[in-house]
């Protein structure tokens, strides 16, 4: 049964991808990418990756679509047809696809427990998580403790990308000599049904985000997912009530504080670990009991990750949404 479902989802995935590339209407391409992400999330779930599915659903289907739509509003929503490089592209793509399909016959079969990927450090992570952390979600344990360096790096990449977007879009629009008075963007005020439904579900979205944040050690979840889910809730509020209302609720300086504070919190925990006599990001020294110390460290850095991701996604959204169209 699951086999048929998986094949169905994967076929839809290919069809959606081809449809995205074929259409010249950028608006429908963006809407199709949202569907593509949702299908991808379902596929991840079938392949036992609950945390990844949660992230892909919140980010791919939610935040990415909104950011794409904001960018379309500032540029154009139709692509001009262009057949220049089609032959070269078909050639390159055809050769690459056949090479890769040929290579798949050499890969270990799906689900083979003896595949090389399952022999390296993964069994050690699975074995040691109950002993070292004493909580059930191995993904969170690997993310925030065993491979804390990686995650610190990723958080700083998100931070840097957010700063980059703010630098690029923060300058005034060329051609508009004096900045036009900030128009009151009304959102979807005049549409009754989105308004009522949105009002109803926004609190639950934010509540679910907080739940994934604080329950990340026990079930699928953690800072990355929680930050994205809370950001989607606030973006929905901005779409319904207008962007200025959302900025009143969560002002820009709070967002910047979240981005910077979250990254600093993560790095700061690492430095405190060093000051207390451990290695960088070795949380076991944070408390007298090493297991409780690790749990404490993970809770703090997950909070830092959540703050940075939520603040960065919202700052990026506001940077796009508040930019006026060039005249």
């Amino acid at each position: 049964m699951i086999f048929i479902f998986a094949v169905f989802l994967l076929s839809l995935l290919v069809i959606t991808a081809i449809a995205i590339v074929r259409t010249n209407n950028l608006f429908s391409a963006v809407m199709l990418t949202s569907i593509f992400s949702l299908l991808m999330a379902a596929n991840f779930f079938i392949l036992d990756a609950a945390d990844v599915a949660l992230t892909e659903a919140a980010i791919g289907a939610g935040v990415t679509t909104v950011i794409f739509l904001c960018a379309l509003a500032l540029t154009a929503d139709r692509a001009k047809p262009n057949k220049e490089r089609r032959k070269v592209a078909y050639g390159a793509v055809g050769i690459l696809a056949s090479l890769m399909i040929y290579a798949t016959f050499d890969k270990p079969p799906l689900g083979d427990p003896d595949a090389p990927v399952h022999q390296h450090v993964a069994p050690w992570y699975i074995e040691k998580t109950p002993e070292y952390m004493d909580f059930p979600n191995i993904v969170t344990a690997v993310l925030s403790s065993f491979r804390g360096y990686d995650t610190l790096g990723e958080v700083f990449v998100v931070f840097a990308a957010c700063i980059g977007v703010l630098f690029i879009l923060g300058v005034p629009v060329p051609g508009n000599a004096k900045p036009a008075p900030m128009q009151q963007k009304k959102g979807l005020h005049h549409h009754l049904i989105p308004q009522v439904v949105g009002r109803l579900i926004i609190p639950f979205i934010v509540l679910f985000g907080l739940y994934t944040q604080f329950h990340g050690e026990y079930g699928p979840g953690g800072g990355f997912q929680a930050g994205a889910i809370i950001a989607t809730g606030i973006i929905l509020y901005a779409l319904l009530e207008g962007e200025s209302k959302a900025l009143q609720a969560v002002p820009r300086r709070v967002l910047m504080g979240m981005v910077i504070g979250g990254a600093l919190l993560f790095g700061g925990v690492g430095v405190i670990c060093m000051l207390m006599g451990g290695n960088f990001l070795d949380y076991s020294v944070l408390a007298a009991d090493p297991v409780w110390g690790r749990q404490l460290g993970i809770i703090i850095i997950e909070a830092g990750v959540g703050m940075t991701v939520c603040g960065a996604l919202l700052s990026i959204f506001h940077a796009f949404a508040s930019r006026e169209r060039a005249s």
């Binding site: 990756a49 945390d51 990844v52 992230t55 892909e56 980010i59 791919g60 935040v63 990415t64 950011i67 990927v117 390296h120 450090v121 993964a122 992570y125 699975i126 191995i138 993904v139 344990a141 690997v142 993310l143 491979r147 990686d150 995650t151 990723e154 990449v157 998100v158 990308a161 957010c162 977007v165 953690g222 990355f224 997912q225 930050g227 994205a228 991701v309 960065a312 996604l313 990026i316 796009f320």
Partner: peptide, 19 residues
């Protein structure tokens, strides 16, 4: 769990670089 961790963070980094 390891590929899941790598991809989980890559998705979030992906949306920021896309932006």
């Amino acid at each position: 769990p390891l590929p899941q961790v790598l991809i989980l963070t890559a998705i979030v980094v992906g949306v920021s670089t896309l932006a």
